[in-house]
């Protein structure tokens, strides 16, 4: 009988005696043992029938228990390291990018609020916000720098704002420049996600769009996990609070979680949203499964979805309960 161990394959005869000649042992090198540990993962727990430590001593692989422990530990650390670096798949990378976008959004909101408060002291009439404001300040600095052809010129001349000059101007300009860079960086990350989602999950991207698709992967943890979820779960991902309220008490069940952000649901009238969300989630789940298990592009999916949604729209054109029949 052949038994897989971390130090090689052990062959035993009928009486469970080890036949040393037939055994194929690894060389005593942690790197090659590490490879062996990963490649030779036993399917059945066959090695349980023997004592690993005494077998290793018996067949002459190691000379002492200390050597057994040292070699095993070194090899196991090497094997774990290889497995860790292999675990960084493309969907994991995308998740980091999605989370980076969330962080940037939070930061830019905070900073642009500060900028509008700060710059408001010097030019309160300027009713720009967020990115436009940051770009305006980064470009012009003080309002006295505006030229006559600028649309804000006359307003700036009659402004009630204080004077801005010298080191103060430089500080606030740099602040705005940093904010502009964050906005720019956010766009780059978005492009990166778009590009890589096409490659990592083409069907999911086709159905849900790159950003929603990547968000779903990020919220579930991996494409594998998204593919293994039932579509009813995908429908309510991101509606945790409402879902648990529903499970705990008698609250109604949530109709949609994060997939609400897709225009298909967002732009639908309220009485169709639940139905569309259900159809949409089921197609997302199919798409994720195709992406994870086969990787082929399937155009039928989006055609089916369009048909289904058209069907829903035709069947329920009016809000329920108002007795507005088609006749």
């Amino acid at each position: 009988m052949e038994i897989t161990t971390w130090f090689g394959t052990i062959v035993t005869d009928k009486d469970r005696k080890i036949s040393t000649k037939e055994c194929s042992l690894c060389s005593k090198n942690p790197d090659s043992i590490a490879r062996h540990i990963i490649d030779s993962r036993p399917s059945k727990a066959s090695s349980l029938q023997i004592d690993l430590r005494s077998t290793a001593l018996e067949c002459g692989f190691v000379d002492s228990e200390e050597e057994y422990e040292t070699l095993l530990r070194e090899s196991a650390i090497k094997a774990s390291k290889i497995q860790i670096s292999n675990a960084t798949t493309i969907d994991i990378r995308i998740i980091q990018a999605v989370e980076a976008i969330d962080d940037i959004d939070e930061t830019t909101n905070l900073l642009s609020e500060r900028l509008s408060e700060w710059y408001g002291m010097y030019f309160p009439e300027l009713n720009l916000t967020s990115e436009d404001l940051a770009q305006f300040v980064a470009k012009h600095g003080s309002k006295s720098n505006l030229t006559q052809d600028n649309e804000w010129y006359s307003i700036a001349n009659n402004s009630m704002g204080a004077e801005l000059s010298g080191s103060e101007e430089k500080v606030i300009k740099d602040f705005a420049t940093n904010l502009c860079n964050l906005y720019k960086n956010r766009k780059e990350i978005e492009d990166y996600i778009m590009e890589n989602m096409e490659y990592a999950a083409p069907n999911l991207t086709n159905i849900a769009g790159a950003l929603l698709g990547s968000r779903l992967i990020s919220m579930t943890g991996s494409l594998e996990r998204l593919a293994s979820l039932p579509s009813s779960t995908i429908q309510v991902i991101g509606a945790n609070k409402a879902l648990f309220k529903h499970l705990r008490s008698r609250a109604t069940s949530p109709k949609h979680g994060v997939i609400f952000n897709h225009p298909l649901i967002k732009n639908a009238p309220w009485w169709q949203r639940g139905k569309i969300a259900r159809a949409f989630a089921s197609k997302i789940s199919l798409a994720a499964r195709i992406d994870y298990y086969s990787g082929e592009v399937n155009d039928k999916l989006s055609i089916n979805l369009d048909e289904k949604i058209q069907n829903i729209k035709n069947t329920y054109p009016y809000p329920p309960g108002k007795n507005k029949s088609k006749n």
Partner: peptide
């Protein structure tokens, strides 16, 4: 594990003991 001589790391699913029975 690298700092301590008596720990052996095993990256595997605890629900599948056969996957690490060779270690």
């Amino acid at each position: 594990c690298e700092k301590r001589p008596n720990i052996v790391p095993v990256l595997a699913d605890a629900g599948q003991p056969s996957h690490y029975s060779h270690i």
